[in-house]
């Protein structure tokens, strides 16, 4: 049986014919295309999971400032506000976890690109904090990561996961779609519901541009990871409640690719448009270029 899928429809058929989940289909896909054994595939993903957990802990527990000075401790600021939030404590904690990882990334800490460094907060933030709240074990989390990787593979094959080619919709959008699908499987949903959740997530941020201030993975990336976490949770809820995506997942992915191609290069990670081109954004970029980051400043240990 051929386990290689390139579209959501093919993934759906593989799952149906073999009576398997998306996560198991992802493992079998990797067994077929790569050289790792099942045990090695699990070990590698376990290492990713451990690094993800550590990145959340680090982001929440330490005070950190990025090299540019733009990023500090917004994850904790939001967390302190949790009791008063409309989102409620659980969702606020999920969002704060996503922001924490992205802050660790911005401050030169260790993260797992998922699918990129700029969008690295959404997947671990949502899945790990959700598993923590529901007391789900690592085996469940590993399966969720495999599920997410299958969605990412399909997006990478048909569109793009890089801001430079498809804008932020391709980067945090893909991370959110992967997360939404994984969350559906974690919560006992069907393959079709996973694909619907992924489709709705991408639809919600169709056309989102990549406009990093001063070209750095900081502003607005960290807040977009926060949004991406909420988007993933929302779409997994919608799919599990029975709401369907009117446009099928595969068609959404192709349209996301087409929108990315229509996007002006200034809006694809070049820091020449969007927020990067605002008076404040330009001023920050100018300061960054002028400032001399000397050895002492860069090398100071926290």
């Amino acid at each position: 049986m051929n386990m290689i899928f390139s579209t959501g429809a093919e993934l759906f058929d593989i799952c149906k014919e073999n009576n398997i989940t998306i996560s198991e289909a992802a493992v079998r896909y990797e067994l077929e295309i790569g050289e790792r054994t099942r045990g090695e595939i699990y070990s590698e993903m376990r290492l990713n999971l451990k690094t993800m957990k550590d990145s959340i802990k680090q982001g929440i527990s330490s005070k950190h400032v990025s090299v540019s000075g733009l990023v500090s401790d917004d994850a904790n600021t939001l967390l302190e506000f949790a009791p008063e939030s409309v989102m409620g404590e659980n969702l606020t904690k999920i969002v704060a976890s996503a922001m924490a990882v992205t802050e660790v990334n911005a401050t030169m800490g260790r993260i797992v690109a998922a699918p990129t460094a700029g969008a690295s907060g959404i997947l671990p933030g949502v899945l790990i904090e959700y598993a923590h709240q529901r007391r789900l074990d690592d085996e469940m989390l590993l399966k969720a990561l495999f599920n997410a990787s299958a969605i990412g593979v399909i997006i990478a094959k048909n569109a793009s996961i890089a801001g430079a080619s498809g804008g932020c919709q391709a980067e945090t959008g893909s991370a959110s779609a992967m997360t939404a699908s994984a969350l559906v499987e974690m919560r006992g949903g069907t393959v079709a519901q996973s694909l619907d959740a992924a489709a709705m997530t991408l639809k919600n941020v169709m056309g989102l541009v990549c406009d990093p201030v001063a070209g750095l993975v900081e502003c607005p990336c960290i807040k977009r990871n926060a949004l991406g976490a909420v988007n993933a949770v929302l779409c997994s809820d919608m799919a599990l409640s029975g709401i369907k995506s009117i446009i099928p997942f595969d068609e959404v992915v192709i349209s996301m690719r087409n929108v990315g191609r229509m996007m002006h290069p200034d809006l694809r990670e070049t820091a020449k448009g969007g927020l990067a081109a605002t008076p404040t954004g330009l001023k920050i970029a100018e300061q960054m270029a002028k400032e001399k980051y000397d050895l002492a400043k860069n090398s100071k240990r926290d």
Partner: peptide, 23 residues
């Protein structure tokens, strides 16, 4: 091309950018 699932989730790296830092 068949990309690995570990091209999607991974690499483990020091941030902030896979191209500007890890690369």
């Amino acid at each position: 091309m068949n990309c690995s699932i570990f091209d999607i989730i991974g690499p483990r790296m020091i941030g902030p950018s896979s191209s500007h830092t890890a690369g």
